[in-house]
Design a protein around this nucleic acid. Structure first.
Length: 444
RNA sequence: CGGGGCGUGGCGCAGCCUGGUAGCGCGUCUGGUUUGGGACCAGAAGGCCGGAGGUUCGAAUCCUCUCGCCCCGACCA
């Protein structure tokens, strides 16, 4: 190499920078911790649980508690990022609150008594009682009252994406009802009800954007407020046969309701016009009013210098549950079919003969073409039989597959397959299907 | 918590009724032959049968207790 020394090291630095940037975005199967299973795990009942385990995304540690493996974590992060972007766009600010919470705050609201056995309590070495956070109204309200004093600082909306723990009576269905799970929880603070309902509407709109971006078939329904309290709430459900909730909705209008909340007497739509569907609850938003701020004696100063109550709203999204719900809604007999927005990688490169020179070159060209478009890929470079590679790629559900093999490469062609439609096309090496080429532009 | 089921190499299972010292398929490792929809041959590794106690000459198998997991019900993102 006749490059000046400085140049050479700069060149190397750039290369390593690129490698570092791409780390986690693209991967070789031969190096990936992706333990796939041919058979369904005995303990799994629902399809999302079976496929999450078979596709090497999660492994159970104990009842309702899971390890996230690299492939699964990629998807979880995709969901998180979409949620995060839309929360930020809606003006909410990200914080991170603790999992361990002192009993005193829960005693202030009376929930230390009311919450029941689902609240996992424990005592530390100082005989001090604590719990693992199943939700954060107490913590966030305490944070607020210690730091916000004036109407001028409102409205305020903070959120976090964090691990929650609820000691469920019966965890089940894998990620659907775990004890430990990932949740996005947001909390809004306003100086009056009118403003609080505007904050509520802002969050509601953000939720619609989130579920659209996640490419999921969902419904927003009227809901019961449950134990959280408050008098106004909507749930967001992903439609799926395995859903635990029954929904009623007007296919020609906006009206939709959880049957728990349904009241035939006051329903604005004729009973026979309503359609039924099963839903998986993945989001729930509440107007809380002052149910937490009153007992915790939260007051702010208004324009006249008077002390006035604070109106809250809280807004949850079951981030890890969305991963399961997405699979319930997007799979076939061969495995998962990821929407582009959630796919751990956009393209799976099925390299039938990684030892073959033509395949090597084709893989390089394909990778270059994908990188140029900002698409990520997983490269199956294992020395497996073709059938095993096809089956694995179908199972893990990357939206596009590109098969490189000596047969087609003799004519300079590779085969592209759309995982969802099964449609196959033969294209020149390095050429991408138009649909895929456009995908990134559409997403952006 | 009430009702039901199940714990046997990494995964899926058989063996248990009728005690005699653990087997099958997949996966893994070595070598070779293969290579377009889960290959073949030849070798090999890997299990105190969830745990404790008991019965017995002898327990995966019978008895008691215990722990864990799954399913059905009341609760929830």
């Amino acid at each position: 190499m006749n490059m000046p020394r400085k140049m050479a090291s700069w060149h190397c630095f750039q290369k390593s920078l690129v490698r570092a940037t791409n780390r986690g975005k693209s991967m070789k199967f031969s190096q990936l911790f992706l333990p796939v299973l041919k058979e369904d795990p005995a303990e799994a009942q629902v399809v999302s649980h079976k496929l999450l385990v078979r596709a090497g995304m999660i492994r159970q540690v104990t009842s309702g508690v899971y390890n996230w493996l690299p492939f699964g974590l990629q998807v979880l992060r995709k969901v998180e990022n979409i949620v995060r972007e839309e929360m930020n766009r809606a003006g909410a600010q990200e914080v991170l609150m603790p999992m361990v919470q002192p009993a005193e705050l829960w005693q202030e609201t009376g929930r230390w008594q009311k919450y029941g056995a689902e609240l996992l309590r424990f005592t530390d070495r100082h005989e001090h009682e604590s719990c693992l956070g199943p939700t954060h109204e107490e913590i966030v309200t305490d944070l607020f009252r210690r730091n916000v004093y004036s109407y001028k600082q409102l409205p305020l909306n903070v959120y976090q994406i964090q691990t929650k723990f609820r000691d469920e009576i019966r965890p089940r269905f894998g990620l659907m009802r775990g004890r430990e799970f990932m949740m996005k929880d947001a909390y809004s603070f306003d100086e009056n009800k009118k403003s609080a309902l505007e904050s509520y509407a802002t969050m509601r709109d953000a939720y619609h954007r989130i579920f659209k971006r996640l490419e999921l078939d969902y419904r927003m329904v009227l809901a019961d407020s449950g134990s959280i309290g408050g008098d106004h709430s909507n749930e967001f459900h992903v439609l799926a046969a395995t859903g635990e909730d029954d929904l009623l909705f007007d296919p020609n209008g906006d009206y939709a309701v959880n049957v728990e909340k349904h009241d035939a007497e006051n329903c604005p739509v004729a009973e026979d016009q309503l359609e039924k569907a099963k839903g998986i609850e993945v989001g729930h938003i509440f107007y809380l009013g002052t149910v937490y701020t009153d007992p915790m004696e939260v007051k702010i100063q208004g324009q006249e210098g008077n002390l006035q109550p604070v109106h809250m709203g809280c807004y949850g999204i079951g981030v890890s549950r969305i991963v399961a719900a997405a699979i319930e809604q997007n799979h076939d007999e061969h495995g998962i079919i990821w929407p582009m927005a959630l796919a751990p990688y956009h393209v799976g490169i099925i390299d039938l003969r990684p030892d073959d020179e033509a395949c090597k070159q084709a893989a390089e060209k394909t990778i270059a073409a994908l990188s140029e478009k900002g698409l990520t890929y997983a490269h199956d470079d294992r020395a497996e039989k073709p059938g095993a590679k096809f089956a694995t790629m179908d199972l893990i559900g990357l939206p596009w597959q590109c098969t490189l093999g000596p047969r087609e490469l003799a004519d300079g062609l590779v085969e592209w397959k759309n995982r969802r439609t099964g449609e196959r096309t033969k294209l020149a090496v390095g050429e991408l299907p138009a649909e895929l080429s456009n995908a990134m532009a559409v997403a952006a």
